[in-house]
Amino acid sequence: MPDYKVKSEGEGSGFIYTRSFRKIIRSFRNLKTHKGRFILIIGSPGTGKSANIYTALKSLDLNVYDPILFLDNVDMSSSEVFSEFYRTLREDLGVKNNEEVYHKAQEFDAVLLADKILDSEFIDKDKVGISLWTLNKGFDAFPFYFKVFLERLNYRKDLKKINLIIQTALVFRFKGVEYDLLTDFNIISRIMVLIISLLFEVIKISYSKEETLRIVKNNFMDVDEKQIKSCIKKHGCKPRFIFEALEKNR
């Protein structure tokens, strides 16, 4: 089965412009001239956060640092993951310490923390990304995120000279289905996003049924519209899951 998850620029041909994508374009447009921005891209699993991010970056010709993180397994401790994360950044940027990481990152229009860190198992099936590690560790992953938070405080002056774009979701599985706390639970999700919005810029990727229909038809031109609407009813406005369902039934 084809992999419909977009992981880098150049993937995701035949992109359909939506209201969510236009929000991203407007937000990213001044990244070359403004520093210190912290942008969170949220959205339910399967809504195409990666496709929207990479298409926007490419269309605006932004110079972006998009690191990859490969974890050996889901049993790594928070300290091990934290160490591997910064070791990877130091090696990737050719610097000797964490302070130099932040200085080097200032050379880019933005630093993108997205699928290559979150879901790197899609790049190398023998490795795992932060999302899968977090999903398996549960609350035991908290020390890692706390360490990252402390790191942010320690280097807050340097971060004022860096634009960060973070693709994020608080995903958990229930009966084999993935849910995101930030988008899939109506009032609870709205409250959480409202709180986060006080600290960061938040852009939510979501689609109307009409937009979803256009996206799917653009990729499955030979599929009957009635069948697509049936998939939308079953999977919601989540194009990647609909793509996978239609491909399975071919």
Rank of each mutant, 00 (worst) to 15 (best):
V193C: 04
I187D: 10
F172D: 06
K209P: 07
T33H: 06
P239H: 12
V177R: 05
P143C: 04
G12I: 13
L93Q: 14
D75A: 09
Y54V: 10
Q106N: 07
F243Y: 15
I205A: 10
F82P: 07
M1K: 04
A105E: 09
V95N: 00
V193E: 12
I16S: 03
K104E: 15
S78H: 11
S208C: 05
N136W: 09
K160E: 15
I215W: 08
N97F: 07
D115T: 10
E91F: 13
R152K: 15
F82A: 11
V6I: 08
S230W: 08
Y145M: 13
S131T: 10
E99N: 13
N163M: 05
H34G: 04
T212N: 10
E99M: 12
Q167A: 14
K238V: 05
F85S: 02
W133L: 08
I130A: 15
R190D: 12
Y4R: 07
R87I: 06
P67F: 08
K96V: 10
I166N: 06
F122R: 09
A110T: 14
H34I: 15
K7G: 00
F139G: 01
M221I: 11
D119F: 13
N30H: 07
A56M: 05
D75R: 11
Y65D: 01
G94W: 14
I25C: 07
R37S: 15
L112E: 03
Q167K: 03
N98V: 13
L93N: 15
F85I: 02
E247W: 04
L71W: 00
D3Y: 00
Y54W: 10
E244R: 04
L112G: 04
G48R: 12
F146V: 05
G14M: 09
I242H: 04
C237H: 07
L135E: 15
S27C: 15
E244V: 07
V202L: 06
S20M: 03
Y4V: 05
A169G: 13
R19N: 09
K147Q: 11
T212L: 05
S79N: 13
I166F: 10
L246N: 12
R22C: 01
I187S: 06
K226M: 09
D72F: 06
F85G: 03
E211V: 01
N63P: 00
G14H: 04
D75S: 05
G12S: 02
E244S: 05
K175D: 14
F149P: 00
G236Q: 07
E9Y: 04
I195H: 14
D92P: 14
F70W: 00
D119E: 11
F144R: 02
L213E: 01
K137C: 10
D3L: 12
N219I: 07
E99Q: 11
I205Y: 04
L159F: 15
N186H: 08
K127P: 09
K209A: 12
V74S: 06
L113G: 03
